[in-house]
């Protein structure tokens, strides 16, 4: 046991940190893109000034991106990544593919959360003469918050799964550790420990998301 910790302790801590880094940075950008995109999907589909063509275009783009397996996306985006961040390897190199993979997914989750908001409440605010942007922020997003939080939780867990493939461009992370040492080099102890850590992290994230969502519900 002590020997295992001596041998692998630092690596596991480092890789956990790498996973954490990849997830938080790409989550931040995914929300930044996914939230407005989700809103746009909803208002172009159901809003007052609905624009069905905008909706159709966004719909096709999102479906296309979501059809591509992450591993393909990762390589397909190599030149683009290099252009934007200057490198296509390491944690920095994997952020753009992760964001492009997660943001449309998150947009879909947010779209369905927003669609659940009672149309009557939106109407009540329109009847009070309140500006559309205020309605989006103070009514739609606010009322959908418990559901959006659950959506983000799902997206985070998806992100963690995707980071396992990030090892292919040398970004490291827990998934990569389990694969490289546990599977390829046949060191099952490393694999099991890593998987247990991942299970704990995912359980924790899901519980945390559930609690936050419940709190936001206010009932």
């Amino acid at each position: 046991m002590a020997e295992f910790i001596d041998r692998w302790g630092t690596t596991i801590v480092d890789e956990t940190f790498a996973t954490f880094q990849m997830v938080t940075i790409s989550l931040f950008f995914s929300i930044l893109i996914g939230l407005p995109l989700g809103v746009l999907l909803v208002i172009s589909r159901t809003g007052d000034k609905r624009n069905i063509w905008l909706y159709r275009v966004l719909n096709v783009i999102i479906n296309t991106i979501r059809s591509v397996p992450f591993i393909i996306l990762l390589f397909a985006l190599l030149p683009f990544t290099r252009l934007i961040v200057g490198t296509s390897i390491g944690v920095r190199g994997v952020i753009i593919p992760l964001v492009i993979y997660t943001a449309p997914y998150l947009a879909r989750l947010i779209e369905s959360s927003l669609l659940e908001v009672d149309q009557g409440v939106i109407e009540a605010y329109q009847a009070m003469g309140i500006k559309p942007l205020s309605i989006i922020w103070h009514v739609m997003i606010r009322e959908a918050k418990p559901s959006i939080i659950l959506g983000i939780t799902i997206a985070v867990i998806g992100l963690i799964g995707a980071t396992a493939m990030a090892g292919l461009v040398g970004a490291g992370g827990l998934g990569d550790l389990a694969y490289r040492f546990g599977h390829v080099r046949y060191q099952p102890d490393v694999m099991y420990v890593t998987i247990v850590i991942l299970i704990i992290i995912i359980q924790a994230i899901q519980s945390f998301g559930n609690i936050l969502s419940q709190k936001a519900k206010k009932d």
């Binding site: 009557g120 409440v121 109407e123 009540a124 009847a127 009070m128």
Partner: peptide, 22 residues
């Protein structure tokens, strides 16, 4: 102008239409 005008016309509904989270 319509928004301004609407502020002078209150409305209540069958479903109350309050925000649950407020």
């Amino acid at each position: 102008q319509l928004r301004q005008k609407r502020q002078n016309i209150g409305m209540i509904f069958q479903g109350f239409n309050l925000l649950k989270t407020l």
